[in-house]
Design a protein around this nucleic acid. Structure first.
Length: 753
DNA sequence: TACTAAGCTCTTTTT
DNA sequence: GAGCTTAGTA
């Protein structure tokens, strides 16, 4: 009997993994070993051999990955593939929760809070509890809460976990459990779930409602999880529950690429999988089809430094290829320039497309200098991540209105728009509303909708009434309109469009364009007839709540890709640049505390270099403009960890240079407003150096200065003595006399010119 | 209450 | 650099 044609393209290990369709299966898939292929064909094979697509659940890492996989499966087995439940944990569980919401006391159109919403809620709770927001920082609190949720610890349980509470007390944050309780209560009252709630509530649902569990256990006869090394405890428990009847569970992952512990992922899930399923079938995919031998070997030499890992041997048949290049630059801007130049030249000499190149970095903020350099050489690029479209203020404002139309109890959306555009409802009134809401155990909306019942609010009654009436008119309209009509109506009748359109500053124009783009997006959603989804506002908001930048449609333009290493997971490019290989940046200074954190950074580095197929370039700068000042940098230890045989540059040339560059500070916020500042001197700042005369930044653009700091002091004094040669920073340098022969140097960024 | 400039603080990664 | 708070003015 001959195999189905799709099986012929697989190697023996891959094929074995595809054919083992029943029972517990773990596929350890090294970098570039054709994991997606296996997963795709495995599902296709299930369907081809008679399994109903409705019975398959496939959890992937991004929605985009799910979409692509679905298309590939469709090309093998046809439209049946559309019925597979496939998506990220968050999106699949959100779908389940919408169906079952009432069981756990939520409305089915619950709002999904993004992390901005969560942080801002935490912030107001901290304030209401009169706690010090320097101690109770929203980011920190949120990560504590998130961690707890990911470990299935609900607020009332947190309180009883002495370890947690004691830990909080020793760090001086003994009230965290109270904040957690209040946060959970407020989310619930707002009909809102944060990202972690999508997981936690799914667990609760399955755990507390046997009928629901039974339903989904029997629906999902086959469960598949991709990137299993990046699942957290909660996800693990859910998957385990769902698969416990049929035990047809297949997880795919690579412990060497586990890079999400900061959001609760635990490598234990993959290391201990065998214990959960004694009759487990393990398949190892070790042949790398992606990268040159040099890159594979270099990657192996790096990852070998980690202790926590499963035994495997990634190898390749591919050619030896070029050595790994190391670029050393003086500043981040020079680094960008060298990389851009390199891309430019390689494109010429090797006939490559922009899309053959990717520049990867550790933090989103690194993209700026790279972008500028690419722009100068007219190389088109695309940035993934960073400030995403949906996080922009103008977009969030519109979305907040739309959220309120569906769910008036949505506290965060309400606070955002109640006085935007200004309708005379100020801080004082809203503070009172918050207090009343807490007293009466109501949502803020319920208070303002009944403002006449509260004497404290009498001055604001007419204003509240107007607002409530407006929202109610939207609600009525929404019952008969599609998403686009209501969104357009909201944007117009709130004057938001008009206000933005009247703002003719560069930022204003771009904001207006963004809102128009959003409205067009909604229009597209409404006009899209490739699916049967009803074109309601509710469905639209559900659609976008869990979209990420990685999910965005490829625009098929020929672009160089810029993204963080985290985002690059699963992708591959012919030429990869890893920028910013500096100690404290990569590895991040926050992960130097423990061995396991440092090992995760090393895995991250491993992920970065294994994205490359042909050429890999590592770069670092000896000084970098960060947080408004120029900071000295040392090359990353990871460069040293690569076996010297694979590096093009000799080790001695990357040894640490004597640092002569120190912090160079500019007076904060003086630069963008420089011209305005000159006009009037504020008495409070009169004892500071006078503002600078008008200057021509553009004219000085090409100045190259290297500098040496001899003495400096910051803060109010701002006395800095610098001298020397120039660096290639795109900065304007202005000399100014102040007091006794003190030289003050200021940098101005040229972005706005 | 609304607006502005000045000044301070925090800088990781993402669903 | 960005986002936020504060202080001062309108």
């Amino acid at each position: 009997m001959s195999d189905a044609p799709y099986l012929n393209s697989l190697n023996p290990e891959q094929k074995a993994a595809v054919l083992q369709t029943t029972g517990p299966v773990m596929i350890i898939a090294g970098a570039g070993s054709g994991k997606t292929r296996v997963l795709t064909y495995r599902i296709a094979h299930l369907i081809a051999t008679g399994v109903d697509a409705f019975n398959i659940l496939s959890l992937t890492f991004t929605n985009k990955a799910a979409k692509e996989m679905r298309q590939r499966i469709e090309s093998v087995v046809g439209t049946e593939a559309r019925n597979i439940w496939m998506g990220t944990f968050h999106s699949v569980f959100a779908k389940i929760l919408r169906i079952e919401a009432e069981k756990i006391g939520y409305p089915s159109n619950f709002t999904i809070y993004d992390s901005d919403d969560s942080k801002s809620l935490i912030k107001s709770i901290v304030k209401e509890m009169n706690l010090d927001d320097k101690v109770y920082k929203p980011n920190y609190i949120l990560s504590r809460i998130s961690n707890a949720k990911n470990n299935l610890i609900q607020a009332h349980v947190y309180l009883k976990q002495s370890e947690l509470v004691t830990y909080d007390e020793t760090t001086g944050r003994g009230k965290i459990h109270e904040i957690y309780s209040e946060y959970a209560k407020r989310c619930f009252k707002a009909g809102a779930m944060d990202f972690d709630d999508l997981l936690l509530n799914t667990f609760k649902l399955l755990n507390n409602f046997p009928d629901v569990l039974h339903k989904y256990q029997h629906k999902f006869k086959y469960v598949m999880v991709d990137e299993y090394q990046d699942t957290n405890h909660c996800q693990y428990m859910i998957v385990k529950k769902l698969a416990s009847v049929f035990e047809n569970i297949c997880v795919v992952g690579d412990d060497a690429q586990s890079i999400y512990s900061f959001r609760g992922a635990t490598i234990k899930n993959i290391l201990n999988f065998e214990k959960d399923y004694p009759d487990l079938n393990v398949f190892k995919l070790e042949q790398n089809y992606r990268s040159s031998d040099t890159i594979v070997s270099a990657a192996n030499s790096v990852i070998a430094k980690n202790k926590d890992q499963l035994q495997k041997n990634v190898w390749t048949d591919n050619q030896l290829g070029n050595k790994i290049r190391v670029i050393r630059a003086v500043t981040d801007n020079e680094e960008g320039r060298l990389i851009a130049q390199n891309i430019f030249e390689t494109k010429m000499t090797e006939q490559k497309m922009n899309s053959d190149f990717a520049i990867l970095y550790r933090t989103n903020s690194q993209s700026r200098s790279l972008e500028e350099a690419l722009r100068k050489l007219n190389i088109s690029y695309r940035i993934y991540g960073g400030m995403s479209f949906y996080q922009r203020k103008e977009i969030k404002d519109i979305i907040a209105y739309l959220r309120i139309v569906l769910n008036q109890n949505d506290e965060q959306a309400l606070k955002r728009i109640i006085n935007y555009p200004a309708r005379g409802i100020g801080k004082t009134s809203m503070d009172r509303v918050t207090v009343l809401a807490a007293q009466d155990d109501k949502s803020p909306w319920e208070i303002i909708a009944n403002a006449h019942l509260y004497a404290e609010l009498k001055n604001a009654i007419p204003k509240f009434r107007n607002f409530v009436n407006m929202v109610q008119s939207f609600i009525v309209m929404n019952q008969t309109c599609n998403a686009y009509d209501i969104a357009m109506h909201v944007a117009r009748s709130t004057q938001l469009l008009k206000i933005l359109n009247e703002d003719k500053t560069i930022e204003g124009i771009s904001k207006y364009e963004n809102v128009v783009e959003l409205l067009n997006g909604i229009k597209e959603f409404v006009e899209d007839d490739t699916n049967e989804v009803e074109k309601t506002l509710s469905n639209y908001l559900q659609d976008i709540a869990l979209l990420t930048d990685a999910d965005k449609q490829d625009d098929h333009a020929d672009n160089v890709s810029l993204m963080t290493i985290h985002q690059s997971k699963g992708l591959e490019y012919k030429n990869v640049f890893v920028a910013g290989l500096e100690e404290n940046l990569f590895p991040s200074q926050m992960s130097l505390g423990s061995r396991s954190d440092l090992e995760e950074e090393r895995r991250l580095f491993y992920v970065a270099i294994t994205r490359a197929e042909e050429d890999l370039t590592l770069s670092f700068a000896t000084s970098r403009f960060r947080f408004g000042s120029l900071l000295p940098c040392e090359p990353s230890r990871f460069i040293d960890e690569i076996d010297n045989n694979y590096l093009q540059l000799e080790r001695k040339s990357i040894t640490r240079p004597k640092q002569t560059i120190g912090n160079i500070s500019k007076p904060s916020s003086s630069v963008p407003n420089l011209r305005k500042t000159i006009a009037k001197q504020n008495p409070r700042t009169a004892n500071r150096p006078p503002a600078l005369e008008n200057f021509e930044a553009e004219a000085m653009d090409d100045i190259q200065v290297n500098m040496r700091v001899e003495h400096q002091r910051f803060g109010k004094g701002m006395v800095t003595k610098l001298e020397g040669e120039a660096s290639s920073m795109k900065a304007t340098i202005i000399f100014e006399e102040f007091g006794e022969k003190t030289l003050v140097l200021k940098f101005a960024k040229l972005r706005k010119l």
